[in-house]
Design a binder for these strands. Structure first.
Lengths: 337, 337
DNA sequence: CAAAGTTAGTAAACCGGTTTAGCTGCTAAG
DNA sequence: CTTAGCAGCTAAACCGGTTTACTAACTTTG
């Protein structure tokens, strides 16, 4: 028996239109006296307007959807925090969705978000749409979307907030080269994903520039997880003891790699150097602390949300944005002289 | 120019009631043939029903709110993942809210969630309501709430999913005692919070049981953060070099403590042992790896969501639930013989 | 003082759905 | 053959809001 705007109207002996004006702080059409009277009643009976009812006429929900692979991954947790902070500052509430890099799950979430009529979506995509009909439908609906961290061929039409991944891969690899390493592996994340491939490009660029031969064996794909980093490192090092340095596709992977190296009694950084990408907060806590190409993770989330909200309200243009990265030198690499 | 149920009805030459039945898979009142025809049209034009419109008549939104202090804290990230997983399995979508332990923020989020007519709320409370009027209003609305991890006097009426914090504190302290330590500090989290005080009880119980004198100086309150753990450890150890072991109120605090001890050149575990509570995933990655009283964090989140959803649908009773903890022995404590 | 303008408010239409009462035409039962 | 029952559907009311067109009363202006 929820209390509605009609109840308030009756109690105050006014029409519900008048109550509506008071609720929405519309200045016209209500005298100060009745306004106060209505507000008092609202306060007394504890009336809470139903924003869903509102949303169907004003066609906005002040709600956005955030789709990421997994909040329990520190990188995405930090991203999510940035998104949520900005969103709430602008009066938006955010739906959290964990896609697990599963395209089917992502589709289900997108559908749910569309049904809930979110005003926009921030998407860390799990790859191309496999369901073309769904893609067409999705495109047709034309909901504002801002990509985050990763691009996808299929979603070319959408802009987003990223880092320059080529540069990031380049920086990491170049730093390893500066340590007089020649046999440098790229312990990559998921094959085919934008970030993975761009970082590869940077890796190649740095090697080429230094006239170091590119060895296909040194490039190993896996997933963006500790486990994957651990396992691939074991098998990689088993076959290639000559490797002197590992450029890990993310800090999470690097953490797995370091663990594997420890288990194999290979000293980090003395025997093998490791560099990651991301600079998640634990990277400074593990031992040895991780040298990494830092992304402004929180800011990426924050800016993505801001970009989305501006776009929703047509306040601004809608372009790709690339935030700067920075090499953070810690103890998984040797001192350079 | 969104397409609505009316448009579909017109296209199919039926009333919108019929379309509604088809959308909701109601078996009665529509022939197989028209059902197929309508579904085909829906598919072709890419119609997505508006669940907000739906929600105002069926008075449920299939939406729940999750309020936690901070997703970027690994403990809460894991919790959130558990909540979201369960919720999505049951067809619910979850709003993520970061309260930052700020009671005012929490109030604003609660208000927003009420306006959005969430079906229920999972709350890691940020303390008692300071606004009594709001509390009364909130109570009156009588929305299902499940507490998680922490209780509060004010919210006694609500049940939730927890661990036995007295036992957890007891286990941790007892294990430190078993290492022949007598000067054991409790590096607590926020003063007054349920978990903090219950763990204190456990700490006291273990000391009393072992006939170790309780020294007020050895109990230090702070916050549940690395920074706080770090700072309090520095000042604690400066004044009390005789301390042999630290029971940290959480893993996050323990991580800060270990960092501080390192900076003071105090060896862990040789000179000072450290035990935490939580077993967040990094606890196994830091060095030395952390001995800790493990909580089933993900399960707490998952069960809380399940409890809430069952309660929403009146399927089950609604009682407190305490999940088991387990001492995980790693390298921040010495080998016991 | 009349005309015009402003203010405060109402009633009704509308948003996009669900649900109920009732109608039509057919089949099965008595 | 009548009647009851049912399947298939429609029209209209309803959910809880917003918005628009309109009116009545009062104020300002020339």
């Amino acid at each position: 028996m929820k209390i509605t705007i009609n109840d308030i109207a009756k109690m105050a002996n006014v029409s519900k239109g008048t109550v509506s004006r008071v609720i929405n702080n519309k200045p016209e059409g209500v005298s100060e006296e009745t306004r106060r009277r209505i507000l008092k009643i609202i306060d007394e009976v504890g009336y809470v307007p139903n924003s869903n009812a509102r949303s169907i006429t004003v066609s906005e929900t002040k709600t956005i959807g955030l789709i990421i692979p997994d909040v329990s991954n520190p990188f995405f947790a930090e991203l999510a925090r940035g998104v949520e902070d900005c969103s709430s500052e602008y009066g938006y509430t955010v739906f959290l969705c964990n896609s697990d890099m599963n395209i089917e799950k992502q589709k289900n979430y997108l559908n749910a978000l569309l049904e809930k009529r979110v005003d926009g979506i921030i998407l860390n995509t799990s790859g191309d749409f496999n369901d073309k009909k769904f893609r067409d439908k999705f495109y047709k609906i034309n909901i504002p979307v801002v990509l985050i961290d990763r691009k996808t061929q299929d979603l070319e039409r959408y802009k987003g907030v990223f880092i320059d991944n080529i540069e990031a891969g380049y920086k990491a690899t170049k730093y390893l080269i500066s340590g007089k390493n020649e046999n440098i592996a790229y312990l990559a994340g998921t094959y085919g994903i934008d970030t993975t491939m761009k970082r590869l490009e940077g890796y190649k660029k740095a090697l080429t520039e230094a006239s170091i031969e590119l060895k296909p064996d040194y490039i190993v794909y896996g997933e963006y997880s500790i486990k994957s980093g651990y396992e691939r490192t074991l098998s990689l090092m088993k076959g290639h003891r000559e490797i002197q340095a590992i450029f890990a596709g993310s800090d999470i992977i690097a953490i797995g790699a370091i663990k594997a190296l420890k288990d194999m009694n290979i000293l980090v950084p003395d025997e093998v150097e490791v560099v990651g990408i991301d600079d998640i907060s634990i990277s400074n806590l593990i031992s040895p602390s991780l040298t990494t190409v830092a992304q402004p993770i929180y800011e990426i989330g924050y800016k993505a949300s801001e970009k989305l909200i501006n776009f929703i309200n047509n306040k601004s243009d809608y372009e790709d944005e690339f935030l700067p990265t920075k090499l953070v030198i810690r103890n998984s690499t040797r001192r350079r002289t």
